[in-house]
Every structure is written in structure tokens, then in C-alpha cells.
Nucleic acid binder design. Structure first.
Lengths: 338, 338
DNA sequence: GTGAAAGCGCTAACAT
DNA sequence: ATGTTAGCGCTTTCAC
């Protein structure tokens, strides 16, 4: 039942080495103007005591920390993939990263709160993942990934949501489907809107009239998708295919279909969007659109580091990078039942 | 080309509200002894200015931050899964989390460095993921997940590596394999050692002599596994099955087999360990052992929060939680060629 | 009920 | 070459 030891500070090192804390700081940061003998002695003490400067205290004082922040509302399949990509991109740099997950504190405007809590200190720049507000007063470079609202002045990275949705819908049309349900995301999310627009555009090109009856709001989570998925699946004239606006809601739709004893894909085709790893694990594996979440993360890091290097200025030109999507045909899509 | 705005601090709020910063601090933290009218006024200004206290500055001063830290050397499939689990467990608490990824700075002893940089400030406690050293002088509660060395005094969460390896090896034996190669992890990693021990124990029970010729060090990464995998696959008398010590090296082995034109599983069975999502995406999907990385994360969070609640003392009894593993038979394992 | 002031660990002038 | 000092933004006594 020992209590925890107290942390070793720069003062401990200074005292032990018989120098001032300023000197220790100089040694730690490799500044010029320290006698070789002093340097050696201080280094020895640092080693002996196992001292490591506190990122927190340091960041409070100095401008540059060589750490970037990635703010997510939660760590789920989408953000986890993105983080893998970000970490990969960071490996080639001198930067480290802190990920801040707001968790259940992620109510409306979590990104603004998290941003003010971390930015301006701790980090040299920040990546906002699927932020819901974008008019953040920033102290530092900020890059938004897949923001929930469009038309931002912030540098933004997203995917070809519209094109992907068109391709996916055309895939269903090509299989012979004419009654295609849409389990849409929330209308306040930009990516959801674009996917819905793609769905409508593809229908229109095929000369099929848009039927609002076949469209339900599914949100982007399993919880919110359950009820509307059930509605779609239990309609008198059931759609022969359902396009769920993301994989999580597609997976939930498959689950609901299973509960109702409806076979996928023989009785109804179900397709998603994102290509999270989990989508390949469903039974049968899900047909979806790959939006390369890792690439989103990599691109966001590259853009941010570039902005940081560039110094304390916003970019002259608005930055808006859109990455390609790709149809991934697996086995939940098939011709409609006769 | 605007420069970035400067951050709004407690002083800005105080000035605007015509009170001292101490009062603002009291309001922010809900302390007693603030007149109702003052409270209202200060809150209004906070709202107006969009002020949010800096986690960094706050943590420097006060003990409790309601934030836990998770230290990983990198974000890859294993740690990403673990983070998902941790985030899930955190949703039921009032805590938020910061993940610190050391990235390329993750040399020997990264966890000690990262720990001193973050702990004692910023966080109320820390989870160390696959740390290589364990004799950390801690200021706060620390929980280790899947540590690389055994026999630690730190609270530890890991999986039944031994039992899982036994079960996996018995699966191969049951299919009729007698020459089973092992692509082992590094001997300095506890989990790798346990898996190897399980492999040997299963062979022994089956009355098969251990053949060091069939064992190669594969490390736990795709890069390090490539060469030894090739050695195993190109031996004069090739093993009929290969047990790779984790999924990443198993996936690399499959890749190498494909390059050599060796069919999996008809000519050689390949199995892994971990059940990362990627393991189900290989062609054919990989037979492996599930170690429920998400559960590791959840359990680590629960243990840590418990320690934090308990106050500033180390637990009286050593904590060591071992989670069950489960064989996942997919399609890379089959009877040996005749 | 509120403000002044000390100080958390550190860096960056400014002295010497 | 080294030390002294002033903060960074915040919380917390201690006065009033």
C-alpha cells in the first residue's frame, strides 16, 4: 500500500546537478551556450533521475510542441480507421499525436469545446473529425475531415460522397432493381446529403421517379437505424433493395432483416457506404462503397503539417480535397426476386 | 491571409464581466460563495465569448482532470481495436480520454518517456498498451495491457495466450497435421513467449517431438515476418501448416505463399492469432484465435477508473486479469496434402 | 462574496 | 556560460 511517488521536475534535476533550472532547460532543449562539462553533468543527472519534461508545462510556455491533436467525438470504426491513416502519415514526420475523444461529453458543439481545451496549448494544430460546427475561432491551423456542414472556410478533406452514391445506386439498377429504399443519414450532415443526392440523381438518370415513401431517416448509428429499417422492411410493397447511408446502419438493417426472417440478398438487397472493416464480416459480406478512411486521415495530416510549416497564416486559397470512392461489390446485392 | 485569432482566456472573461479571474474560476468550477447575480453575469460573458478553460493550464494546477490517458506506441489494428473498447467503457463514465501515440519516437522505453510527459499533469491515470518496460515510477494509477514482459507489480490485463495457442495447435493437429511450423514473435515479448509455450505443450501432448528447425522468429510485424516466412515455405520438407504468432505475420505469410505460388490451404495451412478485423478480409479468410482486443480495452478502463476512485494508493493485492481467447476457424486451415 | 497573490513546471528574455 | 525573473492560464488559499 505505497502511495504514488511524486513526479520529478526540472527543479529536482537542477538541485541535484547544482545548477539553475534555466540551465537544465537549455540542456534539455539543446540550446547553445552551455559549457560542455555542465552539459555532461546535467545529462547524467537527467539520466539518473529519469527526468522527462512535462509536455503540459512546456506547452504552456512555448509556441511549438511538435504534437498535433486529433479531435473525435468517439472512437468507433470510422474514426479508428482514420486514426490508423493519420498515424501512418505521422511516421514520416517529427510530430507526435494526441487524440482527444470527447466521449459522452460529445454533445452539440463538442468540437468547439475540445478545441479550446486543447488547442493554443498542447498542440501545434488540430484535425477535427466530422465536426458539426465549423465557425471555430482558431488560434492555430485546423483541418476538418468529413464535416457535417458544407461551405466552410476551413481546409476540408472529404470523399466523393455524391459520385459513390451514384455508382452504388447504378449497381442496384443494373441488377434490375426499380424499388430502391434509402435509409438516409441525418439531413444536417453534409456527407449524408450528398449521398442522398447521388441516389436521387442515379434514379433520375434511369428515368425512375423519386418516391418519398421509400426514404427513411436512419441516422448514422445502429441504434437510430433500427426502427426506420424495420419500417422499410415491413412495408406492404417492400423495396427490393435498400441503400443504407453508411455501413453501420446497413449492418443494422441486415440484423433487422434476419429478425424478420427476410433473406439477404435473395429477398432484399442491402448495401452500405464506408467500407469499415466490419462490413466485410457480416454474413453475407456487405456490398458497399469504399471511402478509404485511412487516406482521409493521411491527407488530413499532410495538409495540417503543411499549414503548420507555413507559419502563422491561414492559406491564401481555400483548401478542399476530395478523395475518390470505389464500389465494393460483395454479396448482399443480387437481382430482385422475380 | 488572416492571422489566427488569439485564444480567449479566463482573463478576457474576467475583464469583460468586471470581476476578478478568481471569481470566474469559481463560477466555472461551480464553487460555493458566488453571488447569484455575479454568477449569471459571468455565465453570460462566458457564453458570449465562447470561453472554455484550457485543460493544460487547469491540469497544471489541480489534481483532478477527469481525463485518462492511453499510451500507445502507434495506432495499428491491435491498438485501434483496443481503443474502441476503451471508448465504449468510458461512455458510462464522466471521464474523457486522450490517446498519445509516440509514433516514430517510439524507441526503447517510449512508454516511460510518454508517461512522464503526460502523467502527473493532464491525466488522472494512464493505460499503457504493450509496454516494454514496467518499472515505471508512477505519480498516478497505471494499468498495463498485454505487457511485453511478465512479472510486473503493475495491474495488468492480458489474454489467455497460452490456452489460445494450445487450442489453435490442437485444431491443426486434429486436421491431421504433424509438421507444424511456428513463426514466433520476439522472445522478449511475454505474449509471444506464452503462445510459443502453448504450441510446444500441444505438440508434446500429441506425442510429437519439438523440431527447432520448424521454428523461426517472425517478430510481430509484416516487415519482419516476410523473410522467415519465406524460409519456412521454401524448406526442402515444407511444414504442412504454419502457426504465425499474430495475424499481421500470418497475413504476411499468406502473401509470401501467394508469391511462391503455394496454395492456401490446399498445400499449406496458415493460422494467426489476435483476430484483427483485417484477418477476416484475407482471401481465403484467416483461421485465428480471437483475443477480444476490445474487451482488453474495456477491462483496462474499468480497472483504471476503479484505481482512480480508490484514491492515491496502490492496490493492496496485485491485480492481474486474464481474458479468455476463442478459436475462430475460417478457411486457411485444412487437412494436410496427401 | 470577492479580490489579491502565490504557484503548478516550464521557457524565454534579460542580466551578469 | 549561467542565473534571475517574468510570465503561460489556471486554481486555491488567505485577506478583506
Amino acid at each position: 500500500m505505497t502511495t504514488y511517488a511524486s513526479r520529478i521536475t526540472i527543479a529536482d534535476v537542477a538541485e541535484r546537478a547544482g545548477v539553475s533550472i534555466a540551465t537544465v532547460s537549455r540542456v534539455v532543449n539543446g540550446r547553445y551556450g552551455v559549457a560542455k562539462s555542465t552539459n555532461t553533468k546535467v545529462r547524467a543527472v537527467i539520466e539518473e533521475l529519469g527526468y522527462e519534461s512535462s509536455l503540459v508545462a512546456r506547452s504552456l510556455r512555448s509556441v511549438r510542441t511538435n504534437v498535433i491533436g486529433i479531435l473525435v467525438s468517439d472512437i468507433e470504426p470510422f474514426s479508428a480507421e482514420l486514426l490508423k491513416g493519420a498515424a501512418k502519415a505521422l511516421r514520416e514526420s517529427e510530430f507526435e499525436m494526441v487524440v482527444y475523444a470527447a466521449g459522452q461529453h460529445a454533445g452539440e458543439g463538442w468540437e468547439r469545446r475540445s478545441l479550446s481545451r486543447l488547442s493554443g496549448t498542447l498542440t501545434d494544430g488540430t484535425i477535427l473529425v466530422t465536426p458539426t460546427v465549423l465557425d471555430v475561432a482558431t488560434t492555430q491551423p485546423v483541418v476538418a475531415v468529413d464535416p457535417h456542414v458544407g461551405g466552410s472556410s476551413l481546409p476540408t478533406i472529404d470523399s466523393q460522397n455524391f459520385e459513390g452514391a451514384v455508382e452504388l445506386t447504378e449497381h442496384l439498377l443494373g441488377l434490375g432493381h426499380r424499388r430502391i429504399g434509402l435509409l438516409a443519414g441525418r439531413p444536417d450532415l453534409e456527407s449524408a446529403r450528398r449521398r442522398e443526392a447521388g441516389y436521387r440523381a442515379a434514379l433520375e438518370s434511369a428515368g425512375i421517379e423519386y418516391d418519398p415513401e421509400l426514404v427513411r431517416l436512419g441516422g448514422f448509428t445502429e441504434e437510430t437505424a433500427a426502427a426506420p429499417a424495420r419500417e422499410l422492411l415491413t412495408m406492404a410493397r417492400r423495396p427490393t433493395a435498400i441503400f443504407a447511408a453508411n455501413d453501420l446502419s446497413a449492418i443494422q438493417t441486415m440484423r433487422t432483416a434476419a429478425e424478420l426472417g427476410i433473406d439477404v440478398p435473395d429477398e432484399v438487397s442491402i448495401v452500405g457506404f464506408d467500407n469499415i472493416p466490419e462490413s466485410a464480416l457480416t454474413d453475407p459480406p456487405l456490398t458497399t462503397v469504399d471511402q478509404s478512411m485511412q487516406a482521409l486521415g493521411q491527407e488530413a495530416v499532410r495538409t495540417l503539417l503543411d499549414l503548420i510549416e507555413r507559419g502563422d497564416q491561414r492559406p491564401a486559397e481555400p483548401i478542399h480535397i476530395t478523395l475518390p470512392t470505389k464500389l465494393v461489390v460483395r454479396r448482399t446485392s443480387a437481382p430482385p426476386p422475380p
